[in-house]
Structure formats: C-alpha cells, structure tokens
Design a protein around this nucleic acid. Structure first.
Lengths: 340, 340
DNA sequence: CAAGGGTGTGGAACCGGTTCCACGCTTCCT
DNA sequence: AGGAAGCGTGGAACCGGTTCCACACCCTTG
C-alpha cells in the first residue's frame, strides 16, 4: 500500500537509482530530471522507508540513552534536552532506565551491538575501564552526560564552580561556620557531583582561610530522610554551623526538615542552600544552584552526532556554567557570639 | 563483520530458510537439525538483525508514545510503566513530548505513517474525531492512557471514585462545608481528570444530602499560583469551607500556600486533600489520593500488544483503582459555629 | 579525427532477514 | 501396488532502499 521508490521511478520514467540520487541531493542529476522526479515525489507524497534505508546503509539511525532513576526530576530534565536534540537530528532514541547496579551492568554489557545502535549516551553513569574498552572496541561512539572519564567526550555542568558559588553566597552574607550535607557515591553508578560540589565549597572557604569542620560534614546515601538525619546530627551540636550547603535540593529539603524539627528558624537561625533547582525548590523558597540541565542533553547529542558523522571536533570535556538562584532560605549570618 | 544468518546456515550445512525456522521456533524442523543449528547459533553468538527482520516482515517493532508535559512527575511515572512494559514485550519506543497545542496537532497529523510504527500510545491526550478517523483508517492500533474516548481502548484510573474517596474521608472527619479547587481543561489536550474528580466529590456529598456551594468552587488553568489565587478567593469569604479538595497535588500545594498566607492552621482550621501522591506530597505531609500510575502504563502496553497481534481482548475501558493516603493535612472538622 | 574525460542514467547486486514453492522421501490408505 | 498426504529441506523471490558498474553521449584536446 505505501508508495515505494519503484513507484516513483516508474511514474517519473526514470531508474530507481536516479530517484535515490534526487532524494539524497546527490550530484550528477540533470536539473530537469531532478525537478520532474521531485514533482512525482510530492504528488505521490512519497516518504522513504527508514527501515529499508537502515538495512542498506548498515546504520540504524538510532541512539541508545541509558539513564539512571528516571524518576528524578533532574534526570527527566536532561532527557528532555536529549529528546529534542535527537528529534532535530532525525535520530530515533531507545531509552533504557536503570535502577539497579545489576541492570546497569547487564545493559552496558549488551549494548555494544553496533548493528542496533549508532551511538550511545550515558547519563550520570561512568563506565568501568573494561566496559569502556569493549564498547570502544566496537567503534561505537559514546558521549557522557553528567559523568566523568578521561578519554571519553562528556558534557557536564560546573559542579565545582557551583559549590564555590554556593559557598561564596553564604560567605558574602557573613557566614563563617558552614556545614555540608551530601551523599556517598552509589556503587556502580557515576554520581560524582556531591564530591565535586563539596570540593568547590572547600575552595571558596579556603580562599577566606576557612574550612569545614569534620563534625559539620554529613554524608549518607542520597535520600531526603538520610539528609535529614545527617543534618540533625550536625545541628544538635554546640557550635553548630550557621549555614548548610546541601549537595542537592532533595537533600536540602531534608535539612529543612531537620531545622524545623529542632526549632531552628530559616534563614534567621540557619541558612540553607540546595543544588539543582527542582520544582519543589521554588515551592519552598529554597535558595539553590540552577543548572542548564536540558542544555547538557542538547549539547551531548550535538557531540554524538559529530562523532557518528566521523567528525572529531570540540574539546573532550565540555563544561556548562551554573547560576545562583536566591530565594528565602538564605540570609545574613546571625550575630556572632559575644566572645571576640 | 557481524554474523549473519547465511554464516550460520553455511556452518551448520543447512539452508537459510531452515535457520530462520529454528530462530522463530517454527514446526517442520527435524529435532536433530534444530539442535545442530542451535549449537552453531550459540557458538557464533548470532543475533538476528532487527532491521532486516523489520524490512522483511513489514513491521517496525516500534510503538510511538505521545506524552504531554514530560516535566510533570505523574507523566514521568506513567512513562516508566510504559517503558518497562515495552522492554518486556521486545518493542522499541519512540517517545514524543508535547508541550503545545500546535505540536500536539502536528504530531497527531503525521503519526499515522504505519510504516514507521506498529502502535500508538497516547498519554493524557484525547484525539479529536477527525484525527482518530485518520489514524484508525490506517489500521494503526491505538490505546489511550488517562484519556477518554468511546470507541478507543483505554486504561484510566478511577477518577470519579478517587473524588468520592477524598470527599468520604473528609465527611468521615465531620466536615460539612467542603470546597474544591481544580482546573479547566486545556484546549487541545484531553485533561478531563479535574472534572471527573469533582464529579466524584459531588456524588459523595449528595449521598449525604450536601453540595458544594458555588462560591466554594475555584477553577483556573492548572498551576500552583492559580490554585493559590482560587483558594484565597474561597477562604477569604465568611462561611468559608472547613476542608478543600484539590484536583491535584500541585494545586493542593497552592491551597496550602493560601492557607498560610491567610493565617489558617492546617489541619486545625482547614483540611486539605490533594490527588496524585507526587514526591512533594510526602515531603509536606499532604493527604492525597494515590494512583497506580506506572501500572496504567504497563496495562496499556499489554493492551496494545494484544491489538498489534490482532487479538481484540479485554474491555474497551479498563479502570484501575485508587487509594487514599492519609498524612497530616486532614483532620477532624473544627467545632461548628454556636448557631444550630 | 581519434583518444580521453566527464556527466547523466538505467539496472544489477546487495543489505539480512522471511516466506513460499518445489522436491525427495515416508507413511498411510484403499 | 499405486496414489495421496505430509514432513523436512534447500533455495529463490521478496521487502525497499543504496551503491556501483557499464554505457551512451557530449565536450575537449593534440
């Protein structure tokens, strides 16, 4: 029922090869012939079969996108950017959701079947050496989003800079005792952002001759309740910090819960700053660091498209800037203790 | 480089047809031959090319999923169910995000190219008559999720029942003056849930001889600020309701903002109940109605798979039950006015 | 004017599967 | 014993594109 290239060729009185040349804007076609063929294409509303095209080209016009925890808002936002980038590039997407280390390994193991996909996008997942070796051994182009690995092109946001930005904001408000609530890397995944953001905070403090005290640092598996527990442990001490930087908004919400539970007013007694700028951050008025999440996805697609086309352009590591969003959970540091 | 069916046939000393029969578990193959071919397949680690398979079968093994507002948590959750269902069925997914009426129309217009997809899943989108006519004219199977249309198989949650459940909960707590904050259907989309949930609330009230007063009803385009405005208008009146049902958690958050702004304590002065059970609902302790969102996606995929296979099983409309989740925003009605 | 080179074109071969047909061989029936 | 029915099998044809080769034709150039 659907129109094929043969139908067009017959109706236009040319060979199938000529129609193909017209379709793909190849040279060596007489302008008159080209126009005539194009007219028939329009008249019959002919759309070439992607499947046939793929088979004969030996390419699948499809990229696989592996994302962990599709439920996290930040991941969704990245995916949105990826999707729109792929649509623009005329590529199809196979999305794979990864929620466990086992499935992560299974996918990374099987993915390297180049006859199924032309490219691979790993979001917040850093491949192991051996996995990477196998994937690159097949010649499959790979780009990482929000993950790090020397030797693999990647698009990340400036986590260290974001940490500095958060700390500088607090320093500017007069805070001197600053705590940090973050998460430990989940084994098998490449979540390095908490550590990097911490590093940024440290840098900013060190520039002022300050440091985070060990007892003002709380690390646990990423979750709101865990962050709440970490924050309570920090805030129950005497000499508690006047401000806390959280490695994510989710964790910042846990910190806010802890403050409420301990009867601390925010921001009068305690300033809190998060990271990600998820929707809930706006609702609770959380000061946070905003990242261009969708843009990381778009840039990553652009890089991948170049690689698929055999172009090897751009730097291996592309860093997108972040932005401070000031809302209502940060304020001037409370007056210091009377002691000098 | 990759192994083809011809390689297997040669090595096993059989014809390509026989290998194909083994691959697809077709009858009329001698058990010995089958075993021998299977051994070669395993040895060579042969995986048939999906592209070639698609071309020769004339099917794409792909379904398109059209979702509006990929940013909404409930949509993401549905998509998660769809994704896992499709993986299980061995189908690929092309996801299309729709954020405007224009793009919605464009997609629904172009989608009906059956050579690209075998099935269509519309999430929270009800097709117009003419769109539906064109799509069904091509014979493309369609299943709706969270949308309604007589004549199209669909999987929905029990919105009316959920509304009843919410209202019954409030009635059981002694509330008699109950308000409703919901949204107006967005033109071009099929968001009917607010209206259906309202209908459920009305039913429950009517069973007790009660009704929602006109001035206790607030409808506006779906957003937290709009819901807040609606709620403020309702709550500023004398004779304000003691409880408000919101058509979604997002809107319930707006109601909570309004209550806070007006100095009303929740749940002592005002009970609030939402709908959806998004993550933020847990955070703020919002009583709400939980829907099996991922499950709607899975069920819809199952239906679509049946339709693609030519089976026409199951009822046209499949309704999944919802569940009340009681948290901290609902409580006993305040003591009534001294007047009888 | 013959040789050489470029251009436009049709058609065969190919990509890697599925399906159908024809054929040889059994088995069963009458 | 002869024919029909059925199984197992190899191989051709096909799905709808792309690409390469061969050829006809025209234009240069020495």
């Amino acid at each position: 029922m659907p129109v094929t290239i043969g139908d067009v060729a017959r109706k236009a009185g040319v060979g199938r090869g000529t129609v193909s040349r017209v379709l793909n804007n190849r040279p060596n076609v007489d302008p008159d012939t080209r126009a005539r063929v194009q007219a028939v294409i329009d008249e019959l509303d002919f759309v070439p079969s992607t499947t046939a095209r793929r088979l004969s080209l030996g390419r699948s016009q499809t990229v696989a996108v592996v994302v962990p925890f599709l439920t996290r808002p930040s991941v969704v936002e990245r995916l949105r950017g990826i999707e729109s980038g792929l649509v623009a590039a005329g590529l199809d997407m196979i999305a794979m959701n990864v929620e466990s280390a086992a499935r992560r390994d299974a996918i990374l193991h099987d993915i390297a079947r180049p006859e199924r996909i032309d490219g691979l996008l790993l979001v917040s997942i850093a491949p192991h050496e051996e996995e990477l070796a196998r994937i690159q051994g097949t010649g499959l182009p790979v780009v990482l989003v929000d993950a790090h690995h020397r030797r693999v092109p990647r698009v990340v946001t400036d986590d260290v800079g974001g940490g500095r930005l958060a700390a500088s904001h607090l320093l500017a408000l007069g805070h001197r005792r600053i705590g940090f609530v973050g998460d430990v890397p989940k084994p098998g995944f490449g979540f390095a952002s908490s550590r990097l953001r911490f590093r940024g905070v440290e840098q900013a403090l060190r520039a002022e001759g300050l440091a985070i005290r060990g007892e003002h640092l709380g690390l646990a598996e990423h979750s709101r309740p865990n962050a709440r527990a970490s924050a309570e442990a920090i805030l129950e001490q005497t000499g508690r910090p006047t401000a806390i930087v959280a490695a994510s908004d989710t964790e910042a919400l846990g910190v806010l819960e802890a403050a409420a539970a301990l009867g601390l007013a925010v921001p009068d007694d305690l300033s809190v700053i998060g990271y990600d700028d998820v929707e809930a951050a706006d609702f609770v008025g959380l000061t946070t660091i905003h990242q261009p999440l969708a843009e990381t996805g778009e840039r990553a697609v652009a890089r991948l498209v170049s690689l698929i086309a055999g172009r090897e352009d751009g730097p291996l590591r592309e860093v997108l800037p972040v932005m401070l969003v000031v809302r209502r959970t940060t304020g001037p540091a409370p007056a210091p203790d009377p002691s000098p």
